[in-house]
């Protein structure tokens, strides 16, 4: 049965994946290994997304399946294993911009990948990011923005973090419709992501 769960998730066979997860749990398998096998499926999904086999709906669908499996095995996990283990992230759409769906998808993908995510919402002033970094000690900040006007807000937010003496304590990623390397340099961020999977891989790489 080893690898079947990974394959079921990778092939987006929701009912089969949930059945296998329950079966493994009932047969006494370590819940952490069930979670591990499930996340291996997500790795395959990520590769298929990168090579254009899967699109955003499939990516989100797979994350929902992983979320369901996590809910199934959660009661069997020891308390310490229930805690988010990957790390802390602060995410928000920068001041002046009110687009939320891209940001919400990144939040969801980080969440199912084990990150503790602090979602600040949309139209977030720079100081709110600064305050949240101080409050949570999160080492990763994600700035989202769809419109060109967001570029200045991203730059101002990075500068506010720097002025607060926190720039060396956090890695900052930016994302949105028109973000590229030039915008990253302009904003003073550490990296940019063109999609939710890139945000997850960046965050994993920084932890």
């Amino acid at each position: 049965m080893s690898g079947e769960l990974t394959k079921a998730i990778a092939d987006l066979e929701e009912n089969e994946a949930l059945r296998l997860a329950r079966e493994k749990l009932d047969s006494g398998e370590d819940p952490k290994s069930i979670l591990e096998e499930s996340r291996n499926g997500m790795e395959i999904i990520g590769n298929r997304f990168s090579d254009g086999t899967y699109f955003l709906p499939e990516l989100i669908y797979s994350a929902e399946i992983l979320k369901e499996i996590t809910e199934i095995i959660k009661p069997a996990l020891k308390e310490d294993a229930q805690a988010k283990t990957s790390g802390k992230c602060i995410i928000g759409t920068v001041a002046g911009d009110i687009h939320d769906i891209g940001k919400d998808i990144v939040v969801f993908m980080l969440d199912v990948n084990g990150f503790e995510v602090f979602d600040l919402g949309v139209d977030v002033p720079p100081q709110k990011f600064v305050d949240k970094i101080k409050e949570t000690d999160a080492p990763i900040v994600g700035l989202s923005g769809f419109l060109t006007l967001a570029f200045d807000s991203m730059k101002e937010t990075v500068e506010a973090i720097k002025a607060a003496g926190l720039r060396d304590k956090v890695k900052i990623m930016i994302g949105g419709g028109q973000i590229d390397e030039d915008i990253r340099k302009y904003a003073g961020a550490d990296a940019y992501g063109q999609d939710a999977m890139k945000a997850v891989s960046l965050a994993k790489g920084w932890i």
């Binding site: 709906p57 979320k67 939320d100 769906i101 919400d104 998808i105 969801f108």
Partner: peptide
């Protein structure tokens, strides 16, 4: 409705309805 789906942890529905 999209916001409700996203807030209700149904991102696929939210994405597709968007």
């Amino acid at each position: 409705q999209v916001t409700d789906y996203l807030g209700g942890r149904e991102p696929l529905r939210g994405l597709l309805l968007d």
